[in-house]
């Protein structure tokens, strides 16, 4: 079922100045009354503009193609994305290899303009195209015993030359709790800016979980496994003290090596101002209840 969620950042919304000034005045008024805690999370004006396509497609962390930010754009052309299928297995009623074309014929592709916050404290605004992960999970029929969803990236070192280096334990794996996976914000993205997904951005299909740090949004997915145990995740395996299973965007919980309180929007050149990082990357209203009663400092 598409269109469960409506963008709060849209193209034609691009800086409706009056609206945002009003919100600011509202915020200022509330601050005066000491009510900032009650105020809705305002979108900073800069947030409203999607980052340029060239920036989104030339600045990538996709270590399967090398560790430099420009490496994926340089090397991802080697990747063949056809044919492509996703193996869905584990606690599902209809396990099997699902051809991407068959999946897409059953889905409604919609546009979602999401903030994208990397754990390295930089950010973009990306107009993704895709469908909700829940729709795919429904296709396979999740069994009631399942509690987690595990994801796996393609492992093909001939094409993904970064996999020849032991930088991470390949293939890249990620995971979500089932309720996170079923959340309407959780997207399986097949494109951006209305174009097919650039290979360096995770073609042909990738996950997008906008309230989590970017590395949770696993790229070029070939396998989805429903399980009742918390699945291993690549960065957690690599540096458990720095990257947890949840990895929710949280300005109050620093990375051991740097602060997460603010972020640098990419694409603004030398003098781009830092902006404050929002809790759950600005999606607090939508997802905070998933973590009720949890110590987010412990479950980083």
């Amino acid at each position: 079922m598409a269109h469960r969620w409506t963008n709060d950042l849209t193209h034609d919304d691009v800086t409706p100045k009056s609206a945002y000034l009003n919100r600011r005045q509202l915020m200022a008024g509330m601050a005066g009354l000491g009510l900032t805690a009650l105020a809705p999370k305002a979108n900073a004006a800069a947030d409203l503009t999607p980052t340029d396509f060239d920036v989104i497609s030339q600045y990538n962390n996709f270590y399967e193609f090398g560790t430099g930010k420009e490496d994926p754009a340089k090397h991802a052309h080697r990747l063949t994305t056809q044919p492509w299928s996703i193996k869905i297995d584990g606690m599902v009623d209809r396990p099997g290899d699902y051809a991407l074309g068959d999946i897409l014929s059953k889905m409604t592709i919609e546009e979602r303009i999401y903030r994208f916050r990397c754990v390295e404290a930089w950010s973009m605004v990306v107009p993704w195209n895709g469908f909700e992960l829940k729709d795919l999970l429904d296709l396979a029929g999740v069994q009631s015993s399942a509690k987690y969803v595990a994801f796996e990236t393609l492992y093909r070192p001939d094409e993904m030359i970064g996999q020849k280096s032991p930088f991470l334990d390949w293939p890249y794996v990620e995971g979500l709790r089932l309720d996170e996976a079923n959340h309407p914000l959780t997207l399986m993205a097949t494109g951006l800016y209305g174009k097919d997904m650039p290979k360096q951005n995770g073609a042909p299909i990738r996950l997008v979980v906008p309230w989590k740090y970017g590395f949770k949004s696993i790229k070029s997915i070939v396998r989805i496994t429903l399980t009742d145990k918390e699945p291993p995740t690549s960065w957690n395996k690599s540096i458990p003290g720095e990257y947890g299973f949840y990895s929710n965007v949280n300005p109050e919980v620093d990375h051991p090596r740097w602060s997460q309180a603010s972020e640098r929007p990419i694409g603004g050149g030398f003098f781009a101002k830092r902006i404050p990082t929002l809790k759950f990357n600005g999606y607090e209203t939508e997802v905070a209840n998933l973590y009720d009663g949890m110590d987010l400092r412990k479950n980083y």
Binding site: D54, V55, Q58, Y59, K69, E70, W122, R264, I266, G267, G269, F270, A272
Partner: peptide, 15 residues
């Protein structure tokens, strides 16, 4: 190079 786009989209980190 940073001012003229020669250092990529994140000239600050590059420099």
């Amino acid at each position: 190079a940073g001012l003229s786009g020669g250092l990529g989209v994140d000239p600050v980190k590059a420099m």
